[in-house]
Amino acid sequence: MENTLPELRREHGWSQQKLADALGVSRQTVISIEKGRFDPSLPLAFRLASLFGCTIEDIFTPGG
């Protein structure tokens, strides 16, 4: 899955560690999601969307 997480994170001025802490996951998880190597669970995707004030579809798109 492709995602706009790196751009969203940079827009908000968040580091990977800060985002990981907010989500309650490891920093490696954020790195893997950003690289498209790890598809987050649905609850985690919802928390990401809630965190950035957008929908899941705004962050993740099929493909890649």
């Binding site: 990981a20 309650g24 996951v25 490696q28 999601i33």
Partner: peptide, 12 residues
């Protein structure tokens, strides 16, 4: 320690 390790990539 991550507060939700089950959702972390390490768990996968």
């Amino acid at each position: 320690a991550a507060s939700r390790p089950e959702e972390s990539v390490e768990s996968r």
